[in-house]
Design a protein around this nucleic acid. Sequence first.
DNA 1: GGCTCGATTTAGGAACGCCTAAATATGTCA
DNA 2: TGACATATTTAGGCGTTCCTAAATCGAGCC
Lengths: 227, 227
Amino acid sequence: MPLSEHTESVQDYLKTIFDIQREQGRVATTVLAERLGNSPASVTGMIKKLASLNLVDYEPYQGVVLTAAGEKIALEVIRHHRLIERYLAEALGVPWDQVHAEADKWEHVLSEDLEDRIDAMLGYPTTDPHGAPIPGRDGSLPPPHSTRLCDLHIGQSATIAEVSDHDPAMLRYFAELGLRPGVDVTVIAIAPFGGPLTVRLDNVEYALGREVASYVAVCDITPASAE
Amino acid sequence: MPLSEHTESVQDYLKTIFDIQREQGRVATTVLAERLGNSPASVTGMIKKLASLNLVDYEPYQGVVLTAAGEKIALEVIRHHRLIERYLAEALGVPWDQVHAEADKWEHVLSEDLEDRIDAMLGYPTTDPHGAPIPGRDGSLPPPHSTRLCDLHIGQSATIAEVSDHDPAMLRYFAELGLRPGVDVTVIAIAPFGGPLTVRLDNVEYALGREVASYVAVCDITPASAE
DNA sequence: GGCTCGATTTAGGAACGCCTAAATATGTCA
DNA sequence: TGACATATTTAGGCGTTCCTAAATCGAGCC
């Protein structure tokens, strides 16, 4: 059953369930409600509908998990979303803190034909501007990054793989620092008692809050004290 | 009141009312219903809503006319639509018989910011791929073309100004003929009793049905028998 | 083992945009 | 002028998605 047979609401629910599921496994009603900005009661109603469409497995009081069919649709929506983000940034110069909001609207009206044209025009990209992977047309998606910037030890270097796109203000902050996917980072110091990390980016040192650093995923990590 | 404060339905109604009004003056319920693919009863309901929003002047049993506020919104929607059509054709290579359907979906989710970026990227175009004028940001729009291809006399030449985009199959036919805005055309013969016109396009002669020729607007007409 | 608090579901309802069927207005033609 | 055909509106309803308020479940704590 193609994407377009489902309402925008259904698509948004599936996309959001997929995201939460990646982080937390089973998806609780309240968590979903909060992420979507709806009341828990409304979410229960929609969940029942999704269950009757066999898009989620629903256990009352126990939350939901996507079925294979639901996951397939979620991945199509996410593919649209990330491809559009990439296109907006690359072809139209939209700042990276704005592409998410824009893509949230566009993703629901993108035809398959246009999706293919955009994909080809961009040279079949594999990540969006925040470093998040773009699912393949076949629904393939690499596993999430296992290491965050805040997990590194002093002296370790790594490459920025992905930054969270949930807060536009944080994205503007990252942009100011030059902290973006593909850039190398080295941890210079870690203050005790949950204090800030000192990192070097492009030969400049910055102090980053521990929480902010948890929103940055890294890869290609060097062994500790390589420096 | 900005565009985005109105539902997609309202935007579609206003856009369609504007189009019909240009051709026929006051807009009858039935005509609007047919163009939108809705039942007349549904249209009456929506018309009342538009009237209560002061977007149309409604006289029961007499149809509607846009108010200044309604016209402003209609022009914004049409600007979005035609700018997107142009963008799709030019930047993404979408065939001109498909841009209309695609734009009908995209027009409702285009932010002002993105509108400006697209406008600039295209070099502030004044027409869409079918030759229809793109309203200015200020709502300005040139008057409709006064002459159609079927209005020309034998021997007259003119330039194609605009073709109707209502039928994708007809657009594909026009594309085959090389009949597109900006191309010069000369009327070689006109068969009697409503018969076909023979026209020359790019040094090739074609016979065109009278009705088809009525869907083509022309400009820069030479005096009769210039040839 | 009962209690209580937070999470979740049920109940009831609203706005929107569409529908069909039935009633009513309009305008034209004899 | 009256009757008919057509255009239009009214009445009643449906599906979707959301809401608030009230009931109910579940799990940890005393």
